[in-house]
Design a protein around this nucleic acid. Structure first.
Lengths: 162, 162
DNA sequence: CGCAGGGTGTTATGAGATAACATAACCATA
DNA sequence: TATGGTTATGTTATCTCATAACACCCTGCG
C-alpha cells in the first residue's frame, strides 16, 4: 500500500502518525472544524486518519481499500467526497502529478501548498512557496490567480546519495 | 471538442494555427527532429498537428476521436505514444490539473513550462517561470530537482471583466 | 542477407473519478 | 415536538483516463 518503495531507502521525511500523535492531530482537526461550523463526520475523519497514518502520499483507491476497520473497502464516492472536504478545509492536498493525496503538514491556515517529490522513495515534502514575484507580471496584465499547483520532482537528499 | 466553452468569451489567447502557419510550425518540428536523430513519424506529426490547430488544451480522447482524417478514431496507445514523444522533445506539454495537452508555445529548447489557466474560457497561457529563488533552499538541503510543474488557475483578463 | 532496435497496430484491461438518485442525520423555528 | 430546509451518506452504474502485452513492420547496418 502507499507509494514509494521504488528504492531501498526509508521513507524518511514523514513517518506517519500513530497513537497519541495521531489523536492530537485528529483533535486539532475537530477543533478547527468546530470553529468554522464544519463537521468532521465519521468518513471524513477516517480518511484523514488514514492519510495521517501513512508514510507518504496515498492513492484514492488505497484509501478506498483501507477504509473499513476490518478490511472491507469503501465505495469510491465515500472517499472522494471526504477528500473533497479535507481539501476544502486545507486538511489535505492532492498531488496532481501523482494522482495521490497527503495530509497537510503545515499549520498555517489558507496557505499555498507546494511539494518536493522524490521519484525514488516516493516521499512528498510540503513547503510554502512564495509566488509574489512569479505572478506579479500576470496580475499586472489582468490575470486573477485563484489557486496554484507547484510540484517539483527529483531526488531527496537520502536517495541522491545512494 | 476541446476545452473551454464554459463561458461566452472567445478563446482569445491562442487561436490555433492553420494553413501556412501550421505548415511552418510542423516543418520546424521536422527540422528539430532531424537535428537530434529523432523521427517525426506520421502519428506523431498528426497529433502535433491537432494540438497546433486547437484553440486550447485538448484531452487525450479528443485527440483520439479527431485523429483519423475521415472521422475514424485512433486507438488510445497510438495517441498516448505520440504524446509521450512530443513531450519528450518539448513539442507539447501535459497540463496535470486538466488532464490535457497543449503544443509548446515557447521557442526555446529545454525550457521549463508553466501555465496560467483560465477557469472560465479554458485557455492556457504558457510562460517561462523563474524557479531560481524558489528552489535554492531545496538545492542547499540536498534535493536534486529534475522537473517542475507550475499551474496557476484563475481568470484571464477578458473573462475577469465580464 | 539477416538481425537488432525502434515504431506501430491491436486487444484487452487497469486505474482514477463522477453522475444520479434514494435515504438519513442535523438543526432551526414555529 | 412537528415541520421542513440543508447537508451528508449509501448505493449503483458508468464515465474518463491510461497502460500492459504481444504481434508485426520498417529501417539501418554489419
Amino acid at each position: 500500500m502507499g507509494m514509494g518503495a521504488e528504492c531501498h531507502h526509508e521513507d524518511g521525511a514523514h513517518p506517519g502518525l500513530s497513537g497519541g500523535d495521531l489523536n492530537v492531530a485528529l483533535s486539532q482537526a475537530e477543533v478547527r472544524c468546530a470553529q468554522t461550523q464544519e463537521r468532521l463526520t465519521a468518513p471524513r475523519r477516517r480518511v484523514l486518519e488514514l492519510l495521517l497514518e501513512a508514510d507518504g502520499p496515498l492513492k484514492a483507491y488505497d484509501l478506498i481499500a483501507a477504509f473499513g476497520a476490518h478490511g472491507e473497502a469503501a465505495k469510491p464516492p465515500t472517499v472522494y467526497r471526504a477528500l473533497e472536504f479535507l481539501e476544502r478545509l486545507g486538511f489535505a492536498h492532492r498531488i496532481e502529478s501523482l494522482n495521490a493525496y497527503v495530509p497537510c503538514r503545515i499549520g498555517s491556515d489558507g496557505h499555498r501548498a507546494a511539494f518536493l517529490i522524490c521519484d525514488c522513495c516516493g516521499t512528498a515534502e510540503e513547503f510554502e512557496p512564495d509566488f509574489e514575484a512569479q505572478f506579479a507580471a500576470a496580475a499586472r496584465s489582468g490575470y486573477a490567480v485563484r489557486a496554484v499547483t507547484l510540484e517539483a520532482r527529483g531526488l531527496c537528499p537520502a536517495c541522491r546519495k545512494a
